[in-house]
């Protein structure tokens, strides 16, 4: 038996919007720790890891570890039927081939339930080791989204370089080149407007902008984004989900042949 009640149902709606274009089908894993997902995109160059900790749910019952295969497009269709202020409850019985999403309006005057078919997904689970990164950049998520969008109108790839001067995003295409430099800036009114750069050593890596733009669909989940870079590791683009967990995107770099 599984029953997870999430008062801030809009979080789950936003999570689905953030990942449904990157991954088609995925197993949601439910354990005492929380509700999680790890899935690769179909070309095996990007990975999404989601964790919604059990403490973040108003009610969290998960009698045994359960993995539920879902088509994310179908799940998104169902969650779009929930109001932004609705409380969402996810329910499943042991051995069942369906999951139920229950939506309650804030004043309890409307209750809806949507039952979705589960699917068997043979997914590869990857072991992601803890790593020390050469550079970690924290910046406003809207700023990062803006830069990725702007650069993708010029080129297909972005070079992200971190030096003591700041973080530079560069691209080139048929019509020309573009460079955006963000310097460390901690003298701001609100902490989420700061750009903070922790650099152990300079690093420069190249990534496909198409994936970066896809990751920025998580922008509504968090005011800030944390970008971790090392020359011998995939980039990690992390959006913290307030008091609940995170959504992390990993992307393998492009390298010179």
């Amino acid at each position: 038996m599984l029953e997870l009640r999430l008062v801030q149902g809009s979080l789950l709606k936003k999570v689905l919007e953030a990942i449904k274009d990157l991954v088609n089908d995925a197993n949601f894993d439910c354990s005492a720790t929380g509700f999680s997902l790890q899935a690769m995109d179909s070309s095996h160059v990007a990975l999404v890891a989601l964790l919604l900790r059990s403490e973040g749910f108003e009610h969290y019952r998960c009698d045994r570890n359960l993995s539920m295969g879902m088509n994310l497009n179908n799940m998104s269709k169902m969650l779009k039927c929930a109001g932004n202020d609705d409380i969402i409850t996810i329910k499943a019985d042991d051995g069942s081939d369906t999951v139920t999403f229950m939506f309650e309006s804030p004043n309890q005057d409307k209750i809806a339930d949507f039952e979705m078919k589960l699917m068997d997904i043979d997914s590869e689970h990857l072991g992601i080791p803890e790593a020390e990164y050469q550079a970690i950049v924290r910046m406003p998520s809207s700023e990062f989204a803006r830069i990725c969008k702007d650069l993708s109108s010029i080129g297909d790839t972005v070079v992200i370089s971190v030096t003591k001067e700041g973080v530079k995003f560069s691209t080139r295409g048929d019509i020309g080149t573009a460079n955006v430099v963000c310097r460390q800036n901690t003298t701001v009114d609100k902490p989420e407007e700061a750009t903070v750069i922790e650099m152990q050593e300079p690093v420069s890596l190249t990534f496909a902008l198409r994936y970066m733009n896809s990751f920025t669909k998580a922008t509504p989940l968090s005011g800030t984004v944390t970008i971790s870079l090392s020359s011998d590791l995939p980039i990690v683009v992390e959006y913290k989900i307030a008091e609940m967990g995170y959504i992390r995107f990993y992307l393998a770099p492009k390298i010179e042949d």
Binding site: A46, P234, D257
Partner: peptide, 14 residues
Amino acid sequence: ILIQVYLSIYFLIL
């Protein structure tokens, strides 16, 4: 020429 690396180069498939 830039080539795209796969994640399996970095992460272990469990």
